[in-house]
């Protein structure tokens, strides 16, 4: 019965043409979640939650059975509830419909529309059951922000003001949700890694060289190692490669 209702979401199929690589599909759907989230005025954390819900769902389920865009819409709806930024299904349907059918007129509020809404709500229940109702996550966001504040105090304030470390780290963190990093690494590690990459990007050296004491990232997370950071960074950069691959197609 669950699959039945979920299959109602086939209005959104078609864009997901027979894609051989599920990774690309997931990347696209995550892009869909993030972009729709921005257009819905969602904050970073709810978007992160929506992506995490989506990724967790497809850890156990397959694309053959469930329509990813419908799951994504339900994930957005659910994330709004989880993170206390309530969204209305009507807006979700509108924005998503417009995303998937660009330049189209808004849907009419007819039975078709209500069917869509029903399928989203049904799918939400499905997602909840698949995730065992565990839908609240600890995200790297607040770790990263506190790290940034601490780091800022260690830096020369003019150098800090000149260097867009904060923006870069934040952008990297948000972009990381295109992939499944959030499932495989603890939030502290992801936060450290994006901060590390941001500092590297601008060639900023933080006090505490190799010769004396701990590195800054060791302070932030006791159990993180340089290889972990490198792994995360490399996965992150692969996501950007994926971006160019998916947009080129």
């Amino acid at each position: 019965m669950e699959t039945e209702t979920v299959h109602k979401g086939e209005h959104f199929k078609g864009l997901v043409s027979a894609e051989p690589d599920p990774a690309k599909t997931h990347f696209r759907v995550c892009r869909f979640i993030i972009e729709a989230g921005i257009k819905l005025g969602m904050h970073s954390v709810p978007i992160a939650t929506a992506c995490t819900i989506y990724h967790r769902f497809f850890q156990t389920c397959t694309l053959e059975v469930y329509e990813p865009y419908l799951v994504a819409m339900s994930a957005i709806y659910l994330a709004g509830k989880v993170e206390e930024q309530h969204l209305r299904t009507r807006d979700i349907i509108n924005v998503c419909h417009r995303y998937l059918n660009s330049k189209s007129d808004p849907l009419e509020l007819d039975t078709h529309f209500w069917d869509l809404r029903d399928s989203i709500v049904q799918c939400e229940l499905l997602v909840l059951r698949v995730l065992n109702f565990q839908v609240s996550f600890q995200h790297p966001h607040k770790f990263l922000l506190h790290y940034l504040i601490s780091l800022k105090n260690l830096m020369n304030r003019h150098a800090w003001a000149r260097t867009p470390i904060t923006v870069t780290a934040w952008a990297l963190l948000r972009d990381s949700y295109h992939g499944t990093l959030c499932l495989r690494y603890p939030p502290q590690h992801i936060a450290v890694a994006v901060l590390y990459l941001a500092l590297q990007t601008y060639g900023v050296d933080v006090l505490g060289g190799t010769e004396s004491g701990k590195r800054w990232w060791q302070v932030f997370s006791e159990d993180i190692t340089k290889p972990t950071i490198d792994n995360i960074i490399s996965e992150l950069t692969q996501l950007y490669d994926m971006d160019s691959k998916c947009t080129l197609i």
Binding site: R31, I34, E35, I38, W170, A171, R174, D175, D243, T247
Partner: peptide
């Protein structure tokens, strides 16, 4: 409201 991203499409 205008979150930063390094993705071209975002």
């Amino acid at each position: 409201t205008e979150p930063p991203s390094l993705m071209r499409g975002l």
